[in-house]
Computed example of a mutant assay.
Amino acid sequence: MPRFALKIEYDGRPFAGWQAQADQPSVQQAVETALGRLDPAYAAGARIAAAGRTDAGVHASGQVAHADLARAWDPFRLAEALNFHLKPAPVAVLAAAPVPADFHARFSAVERRYLFRLVARRAPLTHARGQVWQVLNPLDTAAMRQAAAHLVGRHDFTTFRSSLCQAQSPVKSLDEITIEDLPVPHGREYRFSLRARSFLHNQVRSIVGTLERVGAGSWPPERVALALAARDRAACGPVCPPQGLYLTGVGYPADPFSA
């Protein structure tokens, strides 16, 4: 059976997350339902696998999943057909590509990239409502960058790990954190970009929520290093809400979409 990789974009607001659930809408279910219009196996309940199981309310601009189909589709026509059947759900297949039978969207990945968008302004948001986290007062970008530097590298991230996390080890290598400070009408937008091979459950939201406390002046930057060393969930800052988080890309040894 030909295997295809799918690059998927979605607005996470209407969904209970990526993973299919019996009683709540999910992104996985939306894509599998669309596949079921094209392939009898998915109409009968076959499953797809994804690079990241994003939580409720989390968005994606570069999620990757793979699906085994009964026939060899032209990749362009496959993406077009899936997008037709995905309507009106806020989910789009950006690209489809044939991949080797041993390609796995999750286990073949060597890098995942996340973006968190935070807007600071007094007036309520209109256009970006539900797509960013809003705070009222501007943040100290230099202090947040100083604090973030303590987290780059290989560490035990127990402090920044959800108590529900199922990963075998809290030790992860965080390859990069960058923080952009951009003007928006009557405010500022802060964009936190994080890159690693893999992340713990709620790790990104825990890190950004902690860095916001530094930017707001409630924590000195050095306290982040102490929190990391504590290896204690109680030492973490508040976990920020999901609506500002985006899975922006997944890296593989060979990019399946490069053609």
Score class of each variant (00 low, 15 high):
residue 63 Q to D: 00
residue 54 T to M: 11
residue 73 W to T: 06
residue 89 A to N: 11
residue 49 A to Q: 12
residue 92 A to Y: 00
residue 110 V to L: 12
residue 107 F to Y: 14
residue 105 A to W: 06
residue 46 A to G: 08
residue 98 P to Y: 07
residue 103 F to A: 11
residue 96 A to K: 03
residue 111 E to L: 14
residue 52 G to A: 14
residue 103 F to G: 12
residue 86 L to P: 02
residue 56 A to K: 15
residue 57 G to F: 13
residue 64 V to Q: 00
residue 122 R to D: 15
residue 77 R to W: 10
residue 99 V to T: 02
residue 104 H to T: 07
residue 78 L to T: 05
residue 101 A to I: 02
residue 126 T to E: 14
residue 60 A to Q: 04
residue 116 F to H: 14
residue 65 A to M: 00
residue 70 A to M: 00
residue 123 A to N: 03
residue 116 F to K: 10
residue 121 R to L: 10
residue 49 A to M: 11
residue 89 A to F: 06
residue 91 V to H: 02
residue 115 L to I: 09
residue 56 A to H: 10
residue 61 S to F: 07
residue 84 F to M: 08
residue 108 S to L: 01
residue 112 R to A: 03
residue 108 S to K: 08
residue 74 D to H: 12
residue 61 S to C: 06
residue 48 I to T: 14
residue 71 R to M: 08
residue 81 A to C: 04
residue 70 A to R: 07
residue 102 D to S: 13
residue 98 P to I: 04
residue 79 A to M: 09
residue 73 W to H: 05
residue 50 A to R: 02
residue 104 H to Y: 09
residue 108 S to A: 09
residue 95 A to R: 15
residue 105 A to N: 00
residue 67 A to C: 06
residue 111 E to A: 14
residue 77 R to T: 09
residue 122 R to A: 15
residue 112 R to W: 07
residue 55 D to K: 06
residue 93 V to I: 15
residue 82 L to D: 04
residue 101 A to Q: 11
residue 51 A to K: 03
residue 49 A to V: 11
residue 76 F to C: 11
residue 69 L to N: 02
residue 86 L to A: 06
residue 108 S to Q: 06
residue 97 A to E: 05
residue 86 L to M: 03
residue 84 F to C: 08
residue 118 L to F: 04
residue 84 F to T: 12
residue 77 R to G: 10
residue 70 A to S: 11
residue 67 A to H: 05
residue 90 P to Y: 10
residue 68 D to A: 11
residue 116 F to G: 02
residue 108 S to H: 09
residue 68 D to H: 09
residue 87 K to T: 14
residue 64 V to H: 02
residue 125 L to A: 11
residue 102 D to M: 05
residue 104 H to D: 15
residue 107 F to P: 02
residue 68 D to T: 07
residue 118 L to V: 15
residue 98 P to D: 09
residue 107 F to G: 01
residue 59 H to Y: 00
residue 59 H to E: 05
residue 126 T to K: 14
residue 106 R to F: 10
residue 51 A to P: 00
residue 88 P to F: 07
residue 93 V to T: 03
residue 87 K to S: 08
residue 106 R to A: 14
residue 112 R to H: 05
residue 80 E to G: 04
residue 74 D to L: 09
residue 94 L to Y: 03
residue 66 H to M: 01
residue 82 L to F: 05
residue 70 A to Y: 01
residue 96 A to V: 06
residue 109 A to P: 04
residue 101 A to K: 07
residue 56 A to S: 14
residue 100 P to K: 03
residue 121 R to Y: 06
residue 94 L to M: 13
residue 108 S to Y: 08
residue 116 F to I: 05
residue 53 R to A: 08
residue 100 P to C: 01
residue 59 H to R: 01
residue 50 A to E: 00
